[in-house]
Simulated scan of single mutants.
Amino acid sequence: MNRSVTFQVQKLFLITLVLKVGSSFLGWLFQLQWSLGFAVPLAIMMTYILTGYFHRAPGVSDEKFADSCYYLGFIFTITSIIFSLFDLPNIGTKIQEIAVRFGAAMVSTVLGLGVRVYLVSFKKDIGDAIRDAEDAVLDTTRKFTEQLAIVLEKLGHFESQVDEQGNCTVLS
């Protein structure tokens, strides 16, 4: 990863959260669900994911960053649901706006969860590393045992040749 410019993930998270919630609020206030309620918050989240992935401070592990992406998506889901609840009394006339907010909420959650699964679930954990080490030790032990058997066989053959040559020398 290119870390020439790094960001503190905690501050980046807070800025992203404020921007996403602010955008959702403005989308609800001005009835601009597709732009301020859907596209802008998801663009903000994608910016957070890409910036954090490529430019986060070295002390932040993949697990911590992945969790922050998941939580950001989940918090946005809750925020979208809250703004949808404000329009619940007018559900008959505002069902499309409510549906857009729920759609944005679900996409945001799936995006955050997808990042978490990608960064954490496919990474080797301590159990995987121990199993790999055990397998390597067993494989090396087996190879070592085979090599010892070959060496022992050659040593026996060499001993036979020495005895044979010794007998020939004594008899001559």
Rank of each mutant, 00 (worst) to 15 (best):
A39F: 03
G73E: 09
S35C: 09
F76S: 10
L113E: 05
P89S: 13
A57V: 03
S80Y: 10
L72K: 01
Y70F: 15
G112I: 02
A99T: 05
F38G: 01
Q96E: 15
K64P: 09
I82Q: 06
L119S: 05
I49Y: 03
Q33F: 09
A104Q: 02
Y48M: 06
F38K: 04
C69F: 00
I75S: 06
Y118N: 11
F74N: 06
I82P: 02
A57D: 06
I91E: 00
T109F: 14
T93L: 07
A104T: 00
S80T: 12
M106D: 10
F86W: 15
V117N: 05
T47D: 10
P89R: 14
K94V: 04
S84G: 13
R116G: 01
A104F: 07
A99R: 06
V107N: 04
Q33K: 03
D62A: 04
E63V: 06
I75T: 10
I78L: 15
L85S: 07
P58K: 14
D67Q: 12
A43F: 14
I49D: 03
F74P: 09
I91T: 08
I44C: 05
T77M: 13
F38S: 04
Q96W: 11
F76V: 11
S68N: 03
S35Y: 08
V40L: 11
V115W: 06
G114V: 02
A43W: 15
I98E: 07
V115M: 12
S84L: 11
A66L: 00
I49A: 07
K64S: 10
S68Q: 13
T109Q: 09
V110Q: 04
K64T: 12
H55T: 10
S80A: 13
A43P: 11
V60L: 07
S35R: 04
M46E: 11
L50K: 02
I95N: 14
F83H: 10
V107D: 02
F83V: 12
Y70M: 04
G52R: 01
G73A: 14
F65I: 06
R116Q: 09
V107Q: 10
R101Y: 15
I82C: 07
W34Y: 13
F54N: 07
G103Y: 08
Y48W: 01
A99Q: 09
F102S: 00
G37F: 12
